[in-house]
């Protein structure tokens, strides 16, 4: 029933046995111990499980692990290295773009994708890009500010 898949996760090759029905989010969390990817809903609305698949933000609760075979996955744990923060992580910190932090990994990874396509988004474009990421704490205002600030830093 189970089958072996090989994924490139945060630059490392990981091979694991999964059920064909297993969701990427569950495999990342339960089998690869990457618990920075969170699960906040079961209908692909909240975006807490967002990861980058070949550089593009996807909801890992709506991707089968077997679909990710051979692809590059970046989770929040792999976004930065060397003890330095990614400019978006830094900006979320500086602009108070998080409170409980549960939605934050997904927010940041969605923003990475947004800024890779549109380095100078307007406030409306940022809010539109965040439609698939719910935050119950911040009211979004400081998240928008953080993404604007990071956009400036990345330019």
């Amino acid at each position: 029933m189970k089958r072996s898949i090989t994924l490139d996760v945060n630059g490392a090759t990981r091979t694991t046995e999964v059920e064909p029905r297993a969701l990427l989010a569950s495999v990342l969390r339960d089998q690869l111990d990457l618990t920075g990817t969170h699960i906040g809903c079961d209908t692909s609305q909240c975006g807490a499980c967002t990861v980058l698949l070949d550089g593009r933000a996807v909801k890992s609760c709506t991707v089968l692990a077997v679909q990710a075979e051979g692809k590059q996955i970046t989770t929040i744990e792999g976004l930065s290295g060397d003890g330095r923060l990614h400019p978006l992580q830094q900006a979320f910190w500086e602009k108070h773009g998080l409170q409980c932090g549960f939605c934050t990994p997904g927010m940041i990874l969605t923003a990475v994708d947004l800024l890779s396509q549109n380095p100078t988004p307007s406030e409306a474009e940022i809010r539109h890009a965040l439609e698939g990421n719910l935050c119950r704490c911040t009211g979004y205002q400081n998240i928008v500010a953080a993404i604007q600030s990071a956009a400036g830093a990345l330019r």
Binding site: S44, L53, A57, K59, T62, V63, D113, E131, G132, N133
Partner: peptide
């Protein structure tokens, strides 16, 4: 349609 992540996948 959907949202940024849904449009990607």
């Amino acid at each position: 349609i959907g949202d940024l992540q849904v449009r990607n996948a």
